[in-house]
């Protein structure tokens, strides 16, 4: 397993390099100029100087190498430096956002907490709701509970989040006034009252996303349970006198979790990238919103960096899913 993991990690390097090149080239070939946001009153010579400072006048290959170096060496050093308080990176050129002129990494670092609390909480809650629903629906297939579950997950699955989001806003904040419709990112949790406020403003966006996630994962859980409930080993477990509880929650669940855990792991990267719409609807200024605004403003370094981070997360969680699969299923041995 260890050798497998190491081999996969090594293999991830060329994969990621290739992805980085594709991302870089795609965005490079798209029209756009770092100076497009600079006021027209700035004289051309100054603009030229600014371009040079950003390295934008160099040949494409150099810029690619520079970006790689910045991404993999300089920015990590900065982050390390910020954590340890030691200046490790010196004054090497960082990846600078064209839009805000500050380092891309700093902006991302500001946005991550919002995304993680809202979208992450929604994912965790979605999974926690989905698993018991999926298990019970399968065990009582075609019962009213199962039918209801099927109906709700069909809705959760097929109705887009911008619709459910707006619907919830109309019902719960406009009409009932229970929850705010806009997520206030400046809110700091310092005491009980502000904590309650934070919970309140999280309710709507988290519900929207949790419904969506739960719909998907409960379906996986249900069908995986159904697959396994029909297996011969279930009959064997019953034939030696195991209680239904043990049969379902130990024998069947342990087998059913194998594909579901994989699906859950593969879904984690979408926490970072996939909630763009919900973040827009509720004005959560997380990573998704950051990406959208960067695209609008033609902020190439920001878009490149974010896209590449998403790519890394996807590759990473693919690897994690594979490793988990090997851990959960004794039939799979990777070496």
């Amino acid at each position: 397993m260890l050798t497998f993991t190491i081999r996969r990690l090594l293999l991830a390097i060329p994969t990621l390099l290739f992805i980085s090149l594709v991302i870089f080239l795609l965005l490079e070939l798209a029209p756009g100029d770092p100076m497009s946001q600079v006021p027209l009153t700035v004289p051309p010579e100054v603009k030229q100087k600014m371009r040079e400072a950003l390295g934008a006048d160099q040949p494409m290959f150099f810029r690619y190498m520079l970006w790689l170096k910045q991404f993999f060496i300089i920015e990590p050093l900065h982050i390390l430096g910020a954590i340890t308080g030691i200046d490790l990176a010196g004054d090497a050129q960082r990846i600078i956002s064209w839009q805000s002129r500050s380092p891309v990494a700093d902006i991302i670092a500001q946005r991550i907490p919002q995304t993680l609390t809202v979208i992450g909480a929604a994912y965790v809650i979605g999974v926690l709701i989905a698993l018991p629903i999926g298990i019970y629906s399968a065990y009582r297939q075609y019962s009213w509970f199962d039918q209801l579950g099927t109906f709700i997950s069909m809705i959760g699955f097929s109705v887009p989040t911008f619709f459910t989001g707006v619907l919830l806003i109309v019902i719960f904040s406009v009409n009932l006034g229970w929850f705010p419709s806009i997520y206030d990112t400046t809110l700091k949790v310092t005491d009980w009252a502000s904590f309650l406020k934070q919970v309140k403003q999280m309710v709507l966006p988290v519900s929207v996303l949790a419904l969506y996630n739960a719909a998907q994962i409960s379906r996986y859980m249900r069908s995986s349970m159904l697959d396994n409930l029909g297996q011969d080993y279930v009959r064997t477990a019953r034939s030696v006198g195991m209680t239904e509880r043990v049969v379902v929650l130990r024998d069947v669940l342990r087998n059913s979790m194998i594909p579901v855990v994989t699906v859950i792991a593969l879904g984690i990267p979408t926490i970072f990238g996939g909630a763009i719409i919900t973040e827009q609807v509720f004005k959560v200024n997380g990573l998704g919103q950051l990406l959208i605004s960067a695209i609008h403003a033609n902020d190439l370094p920001m878009v490149q960096t974010l896209t590449f981070i998403f790519a890394i997360l996807i590759v990473l969680f693919n690897l994690i899913a594979d490793v988990l699969y090997g851990i959960l299923d004794p039939r799979i041995r990777y070496d």
Binding site: Q231, D232, Y233, R235, T236, A237, D251, R254, N255, I258, L328, D329, P330, R331
Partner: peptide, 8 residues
């Protein structure tokens, strides 16, 4: 082949 639980 199928009567035993594969994960235990």
């Amino acid at each position: 082949m199928t009567s035993l639980n594969p994960v235990f």
